[in-house]
Design a protein around this nucleic acid. Sequence first.
DNA 1: GATGAATGAGAATTCATTCAT
DNA 2: GATGAATGAATTCTCATTCAT
Lengths: 220, 220, 220, 220
Amino acid sequence: MKQRNAECSRSKILDVAEVEFANSGLFGASVNIIAEKAELNKRMIYHYFDSKEGLYQEVLKVNFNKIFELEKNAFSLNIHEQKENLSQKIPQSIRQGIADYYNFLKKNPNYVKLITREELAGGPYIHKLIPDTFLLGFEKLLQIYELGVKNGILKKGLDIMQIIISINAMCFIPFTRQEMLKEIWGADYDQKLEERLEHITNMILKEITENTHITEGDAN
Amino acid sequence: MKQRNAECSRSKILDVAEVEFANSGLFGASVNIIAEKAELNKRMIYHYFDSKEGLYQEVLKVNFNKIFELEKNAFSLNIHEQKENLSQKIPQSIRQGIADYYNFLKKNPNYVKLITREELAGGPYIHKLIPDTFLLGFEKLLQIYELGVKNGILKKGLDIMQIIISINAMCFIPFTRQEMLKEIWGADYDQKLEERLEHITNMILKEITENTHITEGDAN
Amino acid sequence: MKQRNAECSRSKILDVAEVEFANSGLFGASVNIIAEKAELNKRMIYHYFDSKEGLYQEVLKVNFNKIFELEKNAFSLNIHEQKENLSQKIPQSIRQGIADYYNFLKKNPNYVKLITREELAGGPYIHKLIPDTFLLGFEKLLQIYELGVKNGILKKGLDIMQIIISINAMCFIPFTRQEMLKEIWGADYDQKLEERLEHITNMILKEITENTHITEGDAN
Amino acid sequence: MKQRNAECSRSKILDVAEVEFANSGLFGASVNIIAEKAELNKRMIYHYFDSKEGLYQEVLKVNFNKIFELEKNAFSLNIHEQKENLSQKIPQSIRQGIADYYNFLKKNPNYVKLITREELAGGPYIHKLIPDTFLLGFEKLLQIYELGVKNGILKKGLDIMQIIISINAMCFIPFTRQEMLKEIWGADYDQKLEERLEHITNMILKEITENTHITEGDAN
DNA sequence: GATGAATGAGAATTCATTCAT
DNA sequence: GATGAATGAATTCTCATTCAT
């Protein structure tokens, strides 16, 4: 395991670096500590990633690939389906999309932290690649919204970007403040985290669907 | 005269440091650059604040004082007022409380960034002082909620903490991703920022008030 | 002397660095050793010169300034003097110019070594500043040669650049191979070094003057 | 077949290393770059030469062997030849010796650079092997000089070492400053290089032969 | 014979900090 | 109060070299 396995060494460094960069930032993280925790010689970091910055960028890239992967299946809805189903399928698709996203973040809290840190710094590394990080995972929601409006299922005239921003915000925050919430919620942490998804979904569906459609309550 | 200079130097350092720490973090910020931008000798920083960490803590403290100041007037509602007004006053108070908070963040984006960075790092400096940073500015909302429930104005059984967390999240996010939004929204930035407050308020009131009460639409 | 004297510290570093770079080259020299020998903290090198390379360039600059200073007085000859003196004055001026140059190199063997190292490496630092390092100290010789030819004192049709190159070569070599010659010549080293100037001057004057003019032998 | 490859690898490394050491010095040259340029694995360098230093010494050795080879035929003059020919043969032999040496350097500029770098550093590697690098290629000149003096062809009382040093200097310099001269002389470079040999030879012969003997002009 | 992974020593450089004036 | 010189520890990074395959 430890001996002479390039792929293993490389990914070990990446894993450790992800945690360090997420928790301490590009500057706060130390190459020395990353090497130590990866149980590898410091030199290997430069062997595989050229520089601390190179490693950082690779960590970002790996994380983006994860979300890109998610995006492929996000908000799946066959637009050509029969109309009679839409009033159920559209809210269901939104509900599912938010859940997928939220659960992705729950599994990848470092993704949240890395993105947030990048954004705080003005996004020196991402913004060239990804102009609008809010849309990551939500590209298809724009089409679904239009479809929903056309069929009288979703409210028209909404600024859908504001809604996407709010979804992001509400889904991100338990992971940007993970440490604190773990302490505050204590044993309830896992429970509260699950409830939070329901809370977010309800708020969003209430905001986005026409009042005549019943969208919540049946999920619990 | 000299004393005034001293005061001026001190606050100049604080102002510069706030920006640097907000944008670059405790480790990313450089004492040299802070001194340069403050147009003062590096030595002065140690004179007034003992260390970089000392300066950082003072910056945090200054920012907390601002929000404590806000808190004094937040969600003002004389609980002993006549009951017939409550159905209007409670939503109005909530609306006002969110607006005050949001406008405070708009005026103090560094506050947002500093808190967020602290939380990302696990809050090594704040958590001893402030166990729950979500409550900053929202202590009174808990009481108002209970009053609202007792009077049948607000929905009962809500997890009010989830709602406070969501207010925080939705209000914070335009300032944690300020740079990106400035670029994306361009000339509309100010307009969108104002609209966002309305968006947040509507979502929260819709979530928190009983359906029979009309809470939105009359604010514009 | 050692305490808090910027000028002194700076020049101490320069002096030590000159020796180190001359003997070991830009890459062979060590910042650590330079700091040690200068009895100063390594950090000061970066304080005053930004980088090892910056220090190296400054050392070159200092050495060029020395030769520029020499150049001002080199091959002094008032061209408007009466012609009857020229047959003596021109050879005398050449003799003096070579002697000044040679004695300069004797006093500044590091100059020789630094230039030679630069040239061996293709002159990455000098060539932008000084396209033709052979001419350093010999700019005026070109005019004197023309004057001498016009007055029938110096041979016409000579490639004066080849001669300047040869003067350079013959004057440089005892200092590029200083260590070896010190060992070979032993106690005679100083004596031989003086004789060498005579040897060079004689060869050059023999090459450059018309045969009818007696130019050597009266100098000893 | 494989053995041939081995031989090829070894000499490829040597060739590349010669260039690198000549242009960048022992410290400036990088084992990595040598391996890259030789299109071989770095490990091979250690396989064949044990260490960077070992490789460097081998490069020096190879270059010395070249000049030793030259020396065998240098300044060829059968001392027992009839005296009536000596007045022609001795100058001719000197002329030939210088030309051979000069042309050797022209073909092996790296030899020049390597030796010069060694000397600049105080000759840590050569001086144990070769106490007097000036004599490389000129051992026989000492005997020829004595023969010339005895026969009244060469000036007596000359310090022949100074002359050998000057030959070295004048022959070396176009290759220690090769890059610069290529730029300055441009298209004339090859022409000037040839003329330089004539220039050197004439100066030396003028210096060394009795005035009564005509030594130049008839060689071209 | 050949390769790429791995290493430890040491390089240059930067940092926060303190001293002397 | 203010300044620039000086410091030592730690940082990032590079080097020659060795190991395992």
